[in-house]
Simulated scan of single mutants.
Amino acid sequence: MLTSKFIAEYLWVPFADDGLIPIPSFNYTDPATNETTSLLNDYVMLSDIFATGGTALDFAGLKLGDTVAMFGAGPVRLMAAYSAALRGASRVYSVDCVPERLRLAKLIGAIPINYEDTDPVDQIMALEPSGISRSLDCGGFE
């Protein structure tokens, strides 16, 4: 378990309207089961993978209205897909074979493509006859 002697209670967000925002609780209690889970590692990973996914779009040269295909739907690619949607991509495709990852991709607005069903390029080309604008294969671990 990740522990730290110093844990912030507030986070300063430059140029935000109110300057300081409270950091949410590091614990989540499921109302259905009343079980409490620590979210500390989730916050640490989110601060890393969300920025990594977003930066991949910078390297790809994402422009407003582009269509984007993510090859793989692991955590970094899901954050890249979410970032693409937030940054104005017209359509985002998420290619993977893991049902849970494809479900998460759909939840964030991506079009899930299962490469075990048929060739993913054929699936995308059926929806995008002119092809896509950007393609990403970004990951946190090689």
Score class of each variant (00 low, 15 high):
Leu78Lys: 00
Thr29His: 05
Ile108Trp: 06
Arg87Tyr: 05
Ala56Gln: 03
Arg91Ala: 12
Ala110Ile: 02
Leu102Pro: 01
Ser38Leu: 10
Thr55Lys: 05
Ala110Arg: 00
Met70Gly: 01
Ala51Phe: 06
Gly139Asp: 12
Glu35Tyr: 08
Leu102Ile: 04
Ala126His: 07
Val92His: 01
Gly61Pro: 15
Leu64Asn: 12
Phe59Met: 14
Ser25Pro: 04
Arg91Gln: 14
Ile23Leu: 15
Ala80Gly: 06
Ala126Trp: 04
Asn114Leu: 11
Leu102Gly: 04
Ile132Val: 15
Tyr93Met: 06
Pro112Asn: 08
Ala60Glu: 11
Ala69Val: 15
Ala89Glu: 01
Pro14Tyr: 06
Asn114Ile: 05
Glu100Thr: 08
Phe26His: 13
Gln123Gly: 05
Gly72Leu: 07
Leu40Trp: 02
Glu142Lys: 00
Leu46Lys: 03
Tyr10Phe: 12
Thr118Lys: 10
Ile132Pro: 00
Ser38Arg: 05
Gly53Thr: 01
Thr29Asn: 04
Gly131Glu: 04
Asp42Gln: 14
Ala105Ser: 13
Ser94Gly: 13
Met45Ile: 13
Pro99Asn: 06
Leu46Asn: 05
Ser94Cys: 14
Val68Gln: 00
Lys106Thr: 04
Gly109Thr: 03
Val68Gly: 00
Asp96Gly: 01
Gly19Met: 10
Gly74Gln: 02
Leu107Ser: 12
Asp42Trp: 08
Asp122Glu: 15
Thr55Val: 05
Met1Gln: 12
Thr3Met: 14
Leu102Ala: 04
Ala110Ser: 13
Glu116Phe: 01
Ala51Glu: 12
Asp17Cys: 08
Arg87Leu: 06
Gly88Cys: 11
Ala105His: 02
Asn114Ser: 09
Leu64Ser: 11
Cys138Met: 07
Ser83Val: 01
Met70Gln: 03
Phe26Asn: 14
Ile7Gly: 02
Glu100Arg: 10
Val13Ile: 15
Ala51Gln: 10
Gly139Lys: 00
Glu100Cys: 05
Asp48Val: 10
Gly109Tyr: 02
Ile111Ser: 03
Ala84Met: 03
Thr33His: 10
Asp66Ile: 08
Pro31Thr: 07
